[in-house]
Amino acid sequence: MSASLRSRGNVFAALALERAAERRDDAEWLAALRADARARYVVLNPDGRGLARADRGGLRMLEEAERRAYWPEAPVAFLGADDTASYFAVAATAVDADAAGATLQGRWMDLRAAGLGLPAFDAGLFAYARALLFWQTRVRYCGACGHATTLVSAGHKALCTNPDCRLEHFPRTDPAIIVIVGWRDACLLGRQPGWPEGRWSTLAGFVEPGESLEDAVRREVFEEAGVRVEESDYHSSQPWPFPASLMLGFSARAADPAIQVGPELAEARWFEVDDIVRGLADRSLVLPPPLSVSHRLIEHWLRETSGLELATLMHDEPWLKPKAP
């Protein structure tokens, strides 16, 4: 399977949308899209939750008349279009979000739940809207001169209002590598401090300035687990707007199995196939859910190493424990 096909299987990545970046400054064209009956608005409240249908069958997207009725003054950003609709994002700040959601027969849903529960297109659209609106809240002032900015290009650019500066700010994405490292018939997993006992995942970290993705893989694995990587191959990618990352998945091979745990991890160890099978069977092992590309990396390694399918072994033990009331 190609990397592009693997990426399409990752949560938030299945978004077949024409973003029409070249037309974001065409005010007449945008106005015509919003006046069209096919315009749809994805609504997010201030804490980043999106408005979904009460039956959780998809996003509860608003028509233009509904947007004007509930959030007439809220900023609107163009997301893109397909053959059925044009999509916009709305930051719901003008009225009480809970009351409006109930009136619209919707419910507010967080992005992690949406990634596992909504159709792939809706989950991807939600992730896109959340990332864009989050960036807008972080670029209200120019980082060069401190003056206020104004949003232009349908919400995809912030322009400094200082006539002596006029710096243009664009949405940022923070690249991060996430990697499954193999040694013979074992894979390397780690546990962060504070994680519940039995919870393990692949290693990950942000790419630093002046660093290739492969260099980041080598550095992060050595910093976190003291393991030296000799080869790595790209697996797939995943939008990860928590708040603004792009996860770049890799499979790698260790030069030797020596482990020296660094300060970022509580523990790291090699898992053979039998360790994973037994741990999942007796619930002593909790692996990341399908929400994360980490799950796909472990799935890929297990399939390539043993021919087993992770989906047939997983249990329903939650990766994230419910919050205490």
Rank of each mutant, 00 (worst) to 15 (best):
Y234T: 08
Y234P: 08
Y234R: 13
H235P: 01
S236H: 09
S237N: 09
Q238E: 12
Q238A: 00
Q238G: 04
P239F: 06
P239E: 08
P239Y: 06
W240G: 09
P241D: 04
P241G: 05
P241S: 04
F242S: 10
F242V: 05
P243F: 07
P243S: 08
P243W: 00
S245E: 12
L246P: 00
L246S: 13
M247N: 09
L248M: 13
L248C: 13
L248I: 15
G249K: 01
G249E: 00
F250A: 01
A252G: 11
A252D: 10
A252S: 10
R253V: 14
R253N: 10
R253Q: 14
A254V: 01
A254K: 01
A254M: 04
A255G: 14
A255F: 07
A258H: 13
I259L: 15
I259A: 08
Q260V: 11
V261R: 12
V261K: 11
V261G: 12
G262H: 11
G262R: 12
G262N: 10
G262I: 09
P263E: 15
P263D: 13
P263R: 08
P263L: 05
E264D: 14
L265A: 04
A266E: 15
E267W: 07
A268N: 11
A268E: 08
A268V: 10
R269G: 13
F271Y: 10
F271P: 05
F271L: 13
E272F: 09
E272C: 13
E272H: 14
E272S: 14
E272W: 05
V273T: 14
V273A: 13
D274R: 14
D274G: 09
D275L: 05
I276E: 01
I276C: 03
V277A: 08
V277T: 12
V277G: 06
R278F: 07
R278W: 06
R278A: 15
G279W: 04
G279I: 05
A281C: 09
D282E: 13
D282C: 06
R283P: 02
R283L: 13
R283Q: 15
R283Y: 09
S284V: 01
S284E: 12
L285F: 02
L285Y: 01
V286T: 15
L287Y: 01
L287P: 00
P288M: 10
P288I: 11
P290H: 08
P290N: 00
P290S: 07
V293H: 00
V293Y: 02
H295E: 02
R296M: 07
R296D: 15
R296T: 11
R296V: 00
L297Y: 03
E299N: 11
E299R: 14
W301K: 03
R303D: 04
R303T: 04
T305P: 03
T305S: 14
S306P: 10
S306F: 07
L308H: 04
L308S: 07
L308Q: 11
E309V: 12
A311Y: 00
T312Y: 00
L313N: 04
L313D: 05
M314S: 12
M314N: 00
H315P: 06
H315A: 02
D316R: 13
D316S: 15
E317W: 01
P318A: 05
P322I: 06
P322H: 03
P322F: 09
K323C: 03
K323P: 03
K323D: 12
A324C: 08
A324W: 06
P325S: 14
P325Y: 07
